[in-house]
Design a protein around this nucleic acid. Structure first.
Lengths: 138, 138
DNA sequence: ATAGATAACTTGATTGTCAAAGTAAATGTC
DNA sequence: GACATTTACTTTGACAATCAAGTTATCTAT
C-alpha cells in the first residue's frame, strides 16, 4: 500500500477518534457539543465576527445567530458592534466563557500528554512540525 | 512554549480544519453529515453491530436505530441478525453504500495528497508512522 | 427456574440545522 | 449625490439529529 494511502488512513483514523473523544467529553459537561465547539474556536483563534465564526464552525450564519443568542444569555460570550463597519458584530468570550474554554483546553492538553506519553521529545517535536506544515496547506 | 502545548495546538487545529472540510464536502452531497459518517465508519472498519457502531460514531444506540432505518430505506446499508447472539444485529454496507463510501474516500485521499504535496516521501512516512502511534494510544 | 445483564428499539422532548426571505449598512457606478 | 449592488447579520419555518428513559427479547450466571 502506498505511503499516501497509509497516511490518509492515519489522518482519517485520528480525526474519527478525536471526534469520538470530543463527543464523550462534552456529553459529561453541562453544555452541548455545538456550544463547546463555539467557545473552543473563540478561545483558540480569538474574537471574530459572525461570518468568520460560522465559517470556522462549518455552519451558516443563520444557525450561528441562534447559537450565539443562547451563549449570550448564558453569559459565555458577548457581542460588540464593530466601529469601522456597523453591520459587523464581533463575538468574544466573557470571563465565564474564557474559564470554560480553559477547562476544556486542559482536557485536550491532558489527552495530548496521554497520546504522546511514549514519545521522545524529538518525536513530539517532529510530529508537531509536520502537522503544522499540514495545517498551513488547508 | 513547551513542545506538548505546541503539539496539542497542532493536533486541535488539524482536527478543527478536518471537521470544517468534512462538513463543506458533505454539504455538497445529497446525504447528511451523520449519514456519510456512518457509511465512512462501516467502510473503514467493516461491518459491525449496533453497539460498536454507535460507540464509534459517538451517539446512542437509540439515535443510531433511527439513522440506520433511514439508510436501510435508501438501500445504503443492510441489517443481518447474528447467529450466535440473536439480540445482536450486524450492520453492513450494501453495494450502493460501498460505492458512496469509495467516492467519499477518494475525496479524502485527494485532500491528503493536497495537504502533503510539499512533503518528501520520508516526511510522509514519518508523519504516518507517528500518527499511527498516536492512534494506538486512543 | 429465575434474576440480572445486555442489545436493540420506541417515544417524547429538545436542540441543531438549513434555505429563503428580510433588514440595515457599506460600496460601486453613473 | 442618487441608486443599484453587495455584504453582514437576523428571522422564520420546516426538518433532521440527538438524548434520556422506558420496553422487549435474548443471553448468562447462579
Amino acid at each position: 500500500m502506498s505511503t499516501i494511502v497509509s497516511l490518509n488512513k492515519a489522518l482519517t483514523e485520528f480525526y474519527d477518534k478525536m471526534a469520538s473523544w470530543e463527543s464523550s467529553v462534552v456529553r459529561e459537561s453541562e453544555y452541548s457539543l455545538a456550544q463547546i465547539h463555539t467557545l473552543e474556536v473563540l478561545g483558540n483563534y480569538g474574537a471574530m465576527n459572525m461570518k468568520s465564526l460560522a465559517n470556522q464552525l462549518g455552519i451558516t450564519t443563520g444557525t450561528l445567530t441562534v447559537q450565539v443568542e443562547k451563549l449570550v444569555k448564558l453569559d459565555l460570550v458577548k457581542r460588540q458592534h464593530s466601529e469601522d463597519d456597523r453591520r459587523s458584530i464581533t463575538v468574544a468570550l466573557t470571563e465565564a466563557g474564557q474559564a470554560i474554554h480553559e477547562h476544556h483546553n486542559a482536557l485536550h492538553l491532558s489527552l495530548t500528554e496521554d497520546l504522546s506519553k511514549d514519545f521522545s521529545e524529538d518525536e513530539r517535536h517532529t510530529l508537531m512540525a509536520l502537522l503544522n506544515k499540514v495545517n498551513q496547506e488547508f
